[in-house]
């Protein structure tokens, strides 16, 4: 077992790992951050998406030891400092961008990564960027609306109602 230290949601944390310990397991089991979800075993669904050193990655497809020392943000680190929902989280609630909630952490993390690199995306760019995040509940309609709204755009003007 090897101790792996990272900065997760702004805090320096460590947990014991095997070589095969995935980043997702490190977060869920090692740190108890169960907001990161596992929806598949082929790097397809994106429910486990977190940010590693500022970019979106699928935490089920990265070994914890490979990202030792990294700065990681998970869904638990996305709310505002006072605990209120961040702009993106609030937009998901406002626009009903989630139903069962299982893909939601990955969707929020992917959306945040998109808006960090492209603050004012088109509907097509939102859809294209979210290609690696599968939602089985919403049909994506309200997710796309939420992301557009979070970008500060007039949702009705960008996306046909």
């Amino acid at each position: 077992m090897t101790k792996v230290t990272m900065t997760v949601n702004g805090k320096t944390v460590s947990a014991m790992t095997e070589g095969r310990t995935l980043l997702s397991s490190y977060l869920r089991e090692g740190l108890g951050l169960t907001g990161t979800h596992i929806g598949c075993d082929t790097s397809q669904c994106g429910a486990c998406t977190v940010h590693v050193d500022g970019v979106a990655v699928k935490s089920c497809s990265v070994f914890a030891q490979d990202v030792a020392g990294a700065t990681v943000t998970t869904i638990e680190g996305m709310a505002n400092a006072d605990g209120s929902l961040s702009v993106i989280q609030q937009a998901f609630q406002d626009h009903h961008g989630l139903q069962c909630g299982y893909c939601t952490p990955g969707m929020v993390m992917a959306s945040a990564a998109l808006l960090a690199s492209n603050p004012s995306p088109t509907e097509g760019e939102v859809r294209h960027y979210l290609e690696g995040n599968i939602c089985r509940c919403t049909g994506y309609h309200n997710i796309v609306k939420a992301v557009l709204a979070a970008s500060g755009q007039d949702v009705a003007a960008v996306a046909a109602e």
Partner: peptide, 9 residues
């Protein structure tokens, strides 16, 4: 290739 998260790794 793949999707954004895949392209980041």
């Amino acid at each position: 290739i793949g999707d954004p998260a895949v392209r980041n790794r």
